[in-house]
């Protein structure tokens, strides 16, 4: 029970969350409205890809967000391991399903983009393959949380799993790129870096911001729920103890 004397921290968090939540939610909605308008109606059809270029505006931000969430998860896990901050492992845990959803979306939209571009739903393109592996890392992380009953152990072990996965992400990315250049040199997804035209780049960035803020909004809410759930468990235990 000594652990819950640290509950001052989560209480502070709840205050911060209460203040931030409406703002973040509002910004998310605005960004989505603007982003969708830009990407569906303003952005011109691409010279080569025609209208299918619009898939990029939901595909690429989802992939970005998937990677970003894994980074958040790994950083929270590091904080949880090093400082034993009670909020950190909750942060990592509640980020995982959101990241899984983003990664899943990047895979599905990637496959749907592949059909018009390559004539087949799935091509073992380097980026798609890396995202697939990331998807598996998310699944493994969530599975380990579920498999271990003792919540303290589950938190520690899944932090370790997240960190090891995070160290591996760049190595996996590098190896998949290497493998891909061996087998198929050209990739449709390759864009010409900064040469990309602003009419495409701006909607892409707005959608990227929208996905990031969506994550922030959902994560704040999920965190609050986890904190409340722990409080609830404490109260139920205390009540059961009284009788």
């Amino acid at each position: 029970m000594a652990r819950f004397e640290k509950f001052a921290n989560p209480t502070q968090f709840l205050r911060l969350q209460g203040f931030l939540q409406p703002w973040v939610t509002a910004i998310t909605i605005i960004l989505f409205v603007v982003g969708l308008y830009l990407s569906l109606f303003v952005a011109p059809a691409d010279y080569q890809q025609k209208e299918t270029v619009r898939i990029m505006f939901v595909h690429v931000p989802a992939a970005w967000a998937g990677l970003m969430v894994y980074t958040v998860m790994a950083l929270s896990s590091a904080v949880a391991i090093i400082f034993r901050h009670p909020l950190a492992d909750v942060a990592a845990k509640s980020a995982a399903p959101i990241g899984l959803a983003f990664t899943f979306l990047s895979l599905v939209t990637g496959a749907l983009w592949g059909k018009p571009m390559w004539g087949t739903y799935w091509v073992w393109d380097a980026r798609l393959t890396s995202m697939f592996v990331l998807f598996l890392l998310y699944l493994g992380y969530m599975a380990i949380w579920q498999a271990i009953e003792d919540p303290h152990r589950a938190a520690r072990i899944s932090s370790i799993v997240a960190l090891v996965g995070f160290i591996n992400v760049p190595i996996i990315k590098f190896s998949v790129d290497w493998w891909n250049t061996l087998h198929q040199p050209a990739s449709v997804f390759k864009m010409n870096g900064p040469a990309i035209s602003p009419s495409i780049l701006i909607p892409l960035l707005v959608m990227g911001a929208a996905y990031s803020f969506l994550f922030l909004a959902l994560h704040l809410l999920a965190l609050k729920t986890e904190v409340n759930a722990r409080k609830l468990r404490q109260m139920q235990l205390a009540e059961a103890g009284k009788v």
Binding site: V133, L136, L137, L139, G140, A143, I144, A147, I148, I157, I160, V161, V164, G165, N168, I171, I172, F174, S175, V176
Partner: peptide, 22 residues
């Protein structure tokens, strides 16, 4: 990571096989 878990086998594969990629 999975010591002492009853349903370890499949879980280990899910955790470790992605790391085998490189």
């Amino acid at each position: 990571v999975t010591v002492g878990l009853r349903k370890g086998g499949l879980l280990v594969s899910l955790l470790v096989l992605p790391l085998y990629v490189p």
